[in-house]
Design a protein around this nucleic acid. Structure first.
Lengths: 225, 225
DNA sequence: AAATAAATGTGATTTACATCACAAGAAAAG
DNA sequence: CTTTTCTTGTGATGTAAATCACATTTATTT
């Protein structure tokens, strides 16, 4: 697909720091690829050759653990997907899979490096994002290991509502097994807790469609476990 | 303390990319501070105003979790301590405490930013380290949540032996409570597992002094749980 | 539309740890 | 050197959540 990065409506915060000149140079060195639900965008263990950037859709980042997969996080558009794995290691340390139909822009790594060399504002923004996501991953890990399932599921529901879908009603295109892998619980436990939340009138579930009825209760459960 | 960064024997991989000129500029903008065992180097919740770099000693990075502290990791010299917390947020998102007597170099953040602007090799190295540590934190989180205590303790002992002390005998200046917070277990469980490892002839413990007798067993336990 | 596969719901059972409770050692403070 | 505080060891008890085992519902394929 022929690109014109200058006109791209989905520029990252970092790319917005680039000059017209630099964007013109970027255009021939990146490709946009569409993925269907369930498609693998990045596969753990393969060589990482490009920086991936999510323009549209929704994806999950996941790692093969010693016993089962762990879903590290759900990522929404306007975020880079493979920065640490592209820069930090030649081999991808995690997989990325489309949850909804998605559009990903793959940027040639040496071109990306050139941008870093040329434009300090760009670099600064990228570093900021790297740092933020590292801090976030520390915090997430603490919650994962210390909170119990009810609290973690409440967190996830709040995250979906507040950050990802920005709405009290949303459709989660992931199985309960995925949710389990996201909060380090078995799918049975997820099922039970979701049923409990429903029964208590905190959420309303119709298939994959979720409506949050009582956000305050969720916040309380998130805090108190 | 008056600095001469050019002559510094503890330069980071990144700082080694700096020119004499740049090092000269760096010198008046950083201070080296000594810390005794138990001293707080960075305190979660306070403003972060400097980049911290560990020259000598040993420190732990820890976060206050919802129920108890989590020791994120033990850091050995020639590593930055506060990059994500300094760049990613105005407020420190974690604490750093000296485990052994330590020397930390505090670098003024605007000077550090200048280096990033001036020297792309420096920047590249810093970014590499950021990415690596993010990947590492993903991996650690997976292990933390999926392995059981025996496996996690084996990991820690192997990490001490292979990476931190680079010796089969070492002195861990941390309590079993700390070890518990490092592997997400109670201090009682740590005590029990250590006793078990001792009984099985895998390690020899005399107070805080540990000798690894059977590394292969540890590796096996690390893998199989 | 029928057949097959995938995802969920729910009870019964098991388990790895936490927590509690207290004893005994080791360090630090007086 | 003695007292107090911190750290460790070890049993008994409790518990959140995994696992097992099916039943049932919802998708997908043919």
């Amino acid at each position: 697909m022929k690109n014109n990065c200058s006109l791209c409506d989905y520029k990252s915060a970092a790319a917005q720091k680039l000059t017209q000149e630099e964007l013109k140079h970027l255009a021939p060195n990146c490709v946009t690829v569409k993925f269907k639900k369930g498609d693998t965008i990045i596969r753990q263990g393969t060589y990482s050759t490009n920086v991936a950037y999510l323009k549209k859709g929704l994806v999950k980042i996941h790692i093969d653990g010693p016993y089962h997969v762990q879903v590290v996080r759900i990522v929404k558009p306007r975020n880079y997907l493979g920065l640490p794995t592209t820069f930090g290691d030649k081999i991808n340390q995690y997989s990325v899979t489309a949850i909804d139909e998605s559009e990903v822009c793959f940027i040639d790594i040496s071109t990306f490096r050139q941008m870093l060399q040329l434009n300090p504002d760009f670099t600064n923004q990228i570093m900021l994002e790297l740092c933020k996501s590292e801090l976030e991953s520390y915090q997430k890990c603490v919650n994962r290991t210390q909170k119990q399932i009810r609290g973690k599921l409440a967190d996830v529901l709040l995250d979906f509502s507040d950050n990802i879908f920005k709405s009290d009603t949303f459709t989660i295109n992931v199985t309960q097994e995925d949710l389990g892998n996201l909060v380090d619980a078995s799918r049975e436990s997820v099922s039970r807790v979701m049923a409990e939340f429903s029964k208590d009138g905190i959420i309303e579930v119709k298939g994959k469609h979720v409506k949050i009825l009582d956000k305050d209760s969720l916040k309380l459960i998130s805090k108190k476990g």
